[in-house]
């Protein structure tokens, strides 16, 4: 589905993304983890042709992404609120997105009815513009617009960050369902290691622009990641309370 070769992005003289080779097959569910500044969002933006890499190329379904538009027909993505038209109501926005994919209002309504639980009554018919929604609810609109497009490739950047726990679980199920029963290729980034190892079959760990680990998810993946992120701490061990002598005189 996605093929990356010799990809490099440099800001100033800092290399923010450096991926010699990466291939994501059709139907895979890929999770992207890494600390802030690891290059996750930059990678997403390059796959979506929003920024131009210094060198290398990305192909989607065999066609170079940069300068071509065929990939837009089967790729749905939500990176941040900048993907939403903030002065429209959620309904207007979703009808608009549906219209771009030649869907009638009735078809859109049908999809939205199925998303009723996910919306939890906070999105539709609330009489608010998207800009007046909370970040979490904006994220819901973004995710809904992605699903509405019936994509073959779905890309979400930190979708779990702002939504409430119930919605997080619903979103996880939706992602699993899209991947397992509809064969949608999903690429999701997250800081929540539990969620990401639960949803994704393959985890890419990024550090300073480089993919340093590429692991198929297994029962040990979570603790492996926790080891990496828990810099120098023994996970699970009870922290020793040290009494500061100076303070207790």
């Amino acid at each position: 589905m996605i093929e990356i070769k010799n990809l490099k992005k440099i800001y100033g003289n800092v290399t923010v993304v450096d991926i010699p080779h990466l291939s994501i097959a059709k139907g895979e569910s890929v999770g992207l983890v890494g600390n802030n500044g690891a290059g996750k969002t930059t990678l997403f933006r390059m796959i979506l042709d929003l920024i131009l890499p210094e060198s290398g190329e990305i192909t989607s379904n065999g066609e170079i992404v940069a300068g071509h538009e065929h990939w837009k027909a089967y790729t749905a993505s939500y990176l941040d609120e900048g993907f939403l038209i903030e002065y429209l109501t959620p309904e207007e926005y979703l009808y608009f997105i549906g219209g771009l994919h030649q869907q009638s209002r009735a078809q859109v309504d049908e999809t939205l009815t199925a998303l009723g639980d996910f919306f939890n009554g906070e999105i539709l018919n609330r009489g608010k513009y998207i800009r007046d929604l909370s970040k979490g609810n904006q994220c819901k609109v973004g995710v809904a617009s992605c699903l509405l497009q019936n994509p073959q490739l779905l890309m979400l950047d930190e979708p779990f960050a702002n939504i409430d726990p119930s919605t997080q679980f619903r979103l996880k199920n939706m992602l699993k369902d899209a991947n397992k029963s509809k064969g949608v290729t999903t690429i999701v980034s997250s800081h929540d290691l539990n969620h990401i190892t639960d949803v994704c079959d393959r985890i890419l760990l990024m550090e300073k622009g480089v993919i340093i680990k590429d692991i198929a998810t297994s029962s040990s993946t979570l603790s492996e990641l926790e080891d990496y992120f828990g810099v120098g701490q023994t996970v699970g061990a009870t922290p020793v309370v040290k009494i500061d002598e100076e303070e207790n005189h």
């Binding site: 979506l48 993907f83 939403l84 903030e86 771009l100 994919h101």
Partner: peptide
Amino acid sequence: ASHFDGILVSKIN
């Protein structure tokens, strides 16, 4: 500007 990224990635030529 605030939703230009959204326009770029959606199916609008």
